[in-house]
Amino acid sequence: MRLGDVYFALLGAVTLACGFADLMVTLSGEYCSWWIVEVPGDMFRGGWGGLIVLFAGLFYLSGARNLSEIHQLSKVMMGSVLIWLIAGCDIFARITESIPGGDEGWFNSMEGFLGGCAPPYFPAMLLLPFSLVVIYYIHKVE
């Protein structure tokens, strides 16, 4: 279980940093995008969402010690749930925004749709695959 502790401690630190970045960018009001990452800067996804990512980081950090203990694991799980929630909302928003065609017609073209779903992604979406690791530990306990 040692490995898990280290993994989630690291993930927690990264998540915390992402939350901070979201909040900072939102406060500064500047557009910020680098490689495949785009930090959201609006009050809703950046401010509110950033705060939740921050909470997720804190959950990870406080849970990443002695994962085989169920109370600890549940905190890590809660951290992952928050990430799933934010990322899920972001992905759902992307998809629903990319399907209608706007002024072009009823539906978007395939390229338009894929373009809408292509990177850059918000930090929470990038954290999503890494947060899934918790499922392995949940299975192990049950």
Partner: peptide, 16 residues
């Protein structure tokens, strides 16, 4: 934090 996250979920999905 969970309450805040639930509100976010509600609002985001509702809007989308």
């Amino acid at each position: 934090p969970v309450v805040i996250a639930s509100l976010y979920l509600f609002w985001s999905i509702f809007g989308s």
